[in-house]
Design a protein around this nucleic acid. Structure first.
Lengths: 221, 221
DNA sequence: GCTGCCTCTTACAATTTTATTACAAGGCAG
DNA sequence: CTGCCTTGTAATAAAATTGTAAGAGGCAGC
């Protein structure tokens, strides 16, 4: 299961690719033009970019370079088989592989699978809307931007994520995140930390951490 | 995966070779003239030199001798097929093999692969930015300069490298690098050793060893 | 609107965590 | 033994985090 960004102007082909990949459990975000892609791709982290090279209003290669400026996310190019120079340039722009058109769905799935296996491994990231959490690195991203959290904030976020769909009271949070050894901590402590977390996540409107009046907090929804 | 230095004045050919080798997972640094090569090649360690013999401003053979003064790094020559004397001279200058022009990309890849297999074996060097580590020889280079590390520092660096992408706590480091036989060592020991390592690596800005406040350390990123 | 309760927000000081430095004990080669 | 290098400890400085308290803002019931 991975997040895949697809840039392909042929809508019918795009639809086909999307369906094939979704069948494999991936989430696909499709863009149909260079400009649209530029506007969209930063809104979330992706595990793989699938880029058509020839676009009516730009070039997939340029887009690849743009991606490469800030990340190592793998890139697969879709290109007409007879345009060998495109293929070569694809590697030049930092692409990981290419799929010559026309291609069978099987080839596409295999290539995608291979790249994902190589790059993701068993590495698992948690995503919700524009939020992304990497439990291994203890890193958090919001709209693609890395957000620095303190360990308390990180633990708090993690706790809320693990209890998604449930309302957790401040008491529960205190019990789980603060070692209560007779050393009492004010419940307001939780409020302050929630506030700080919200601030760092840019979550003024409680899209992520939602207050349930009289109860506590819940994540999302 | 290896670092390859390419000296070839024909830019189109150079580009093609670069792309082909990158496809095989190698990193290629290209120089287009004798002088440029002289200035560049010391900035990093390479696993293989690919040298054109005929250059407008110098000679690949001379460059090869220069390389041979300080290292045993393998050298492959690119030479026009009809200049047999070049080929012979190539071996004289310390070259390991030659590839007659014009050559197909396949031949190039095979020869490169063969040489690397022979010289590197499964020997794997770790590189990150300007840092290079040879786990077999326990040697470390920074910006091409060898850095002397004590065994503790080396073990520490290695541990961090092996856990790249993960945050390791001071406790984990202690458990793994210090034989805790009831003989307790202060956690600050780790801090001090990290400090010493950073100093030797010239890593004042934590580009390599990054502190994760409240957690521990992580390598890179 | 008013009241009482719940939640948010803010600034600040205390605490915790990390970095730095100096020093002394131990080890090893000559 | 002597000198040099390594390495842990402890003390100090620097940096970052975190709890508290107090006031502001909301919400529900009346």
């Amino acid at each position: 299961m991975a997040d895949i960004f697809l840039l392909e102007d042929d809508r019918i082909l795009s639809r086909g690719i999307t369906i094939a990949l979704q069948k494999d459990g991936h989430r696909v975000t499709a863009a149909y033009s260079f400009l649209e892609a530029l506007g969209q791709y930063r809104r979330q982290k992706y595990d793989l970019f699938l880029l058509d090279i020839n676009l009516p209003d730009g070039n997939g290669l340029a887009f690849c370079r743009k991606v490469r400026e800030t990340s190592e996310t793998p890139v697969l190019f879709l290109t007409a088989n007879d345009r060998e120079e495109d293929m070569l340039e694809g590697y030049g722009a930092g692409g990981d592989d290419y799929i010559p058109k026309p291609f069978s769905v099987e080839v596409l799935r295999k290539k995608v699978q291979a790249v994902l296996k190589r790059t993701l491994g068993d590495h698992l990231r948690i995503r919700y809307k524009d939020l992304e959490v990497d439990p291994d690195k203890c890193l958090v991203w919001m709209k693609g931007e890395e957000v620095h959290l303190t360990s308390t904030e990180y633990k708090l976020l993690n706790y809320l994520l693990q209890n998604r769909g449930r309302v957790v009271t401040r008491g529960m949070i205190l019990e789980n995140l603060w070692d209560i050894d007779g050393n009492f901590v004010d419940e307001n402590t939780v409020r302050v930390n929630v506030k700080r977390l919200r601030q760092k996540l840019g979550d003024a409107n409680q899209e992520y951490i939602v207050t349930v009046f009289g109860m506590g907090y819940t994540f999302g929804e």
